[in-house]
Amino acid sequence: MNPTEPSEGRASDRGVQKHVLNRIDDKTVGELREIAARYPHKRSGLLPMLHLVQSAQGRITPEGIETCAEILELTSAEVSGVATFYTMYKRRPVGDFHVGVCVNTLCAVMGGDEIYDRLSEHLGCGNDETAERREGDTATVSLERIECNAACDYAPVAMVNWEFMDNQTPQSAKDLVDDLRAGKEVHSTRGPRLVTWREAERVIAGFNDDLANEGPSAGPASLVGRNIARERGWTAPGVPASNEQKGEGE
């Protein structure tokens, strides 16, 4: 931190001196500025910037809040207000793999409640907690009760680092976390092999990781209607049925 940063300045206008525990490295500061510059008004960069803070620091840290505040010329109270509003921003570190079980009504009824309970038991941790690392584990797992993740046709749904893990059962979910902890390569049902939470946060912040081309075009449920239409030769009016020549996807 610049020792001469103004005490009258916005983020740092305070009589209390702060601790420097988690210094944000210069590369990250540069990337934070880069995000702010994507927008006509730099404050728009705040949400992705906070994602990047999580990628760099493993959670939203006071230093992350202050750095964003300084770049955006906001107070740290304003940044805190934003950082505490959104559920994806974590104040405590999460695991390498953050597992969300959808417990919104439809998933809950279809088995999400059961899955969550079994998983919580299995991991020995509750909502928004990280399971203890066991001997031999190469990765940690944390657990969260999440709301509807727009995958209801794949209920019950779990997310790992915000990748879809469709059509779960209590057993599949337990296997999933065991594989993750054991360091096995796990693939999303509709995406690539799972990356760590920090890597995922970096992508969400807008720094693509070249995995876009992995995974299928769509999962099976997404194609149910389209496939029926193909079978039955149904089309929108006047749209040539040449569609039939096309493949059936994955």
């Binding site: 916005r10 206008d13 305070r14 202050e66 107070t75 740290s76 109270a77 304003e78 207000g81």
Partner: peptide, 25 residues
Amino acid sequence: GDSFIALVERGARQQIGIGPDAPFL
């Protein structure tokens, strides 16, 4: 012009808050 206090958290937990180590001065 001193936005040293702000709404933090949301919903029923929404409250007035300050930044880390940044009192309402």
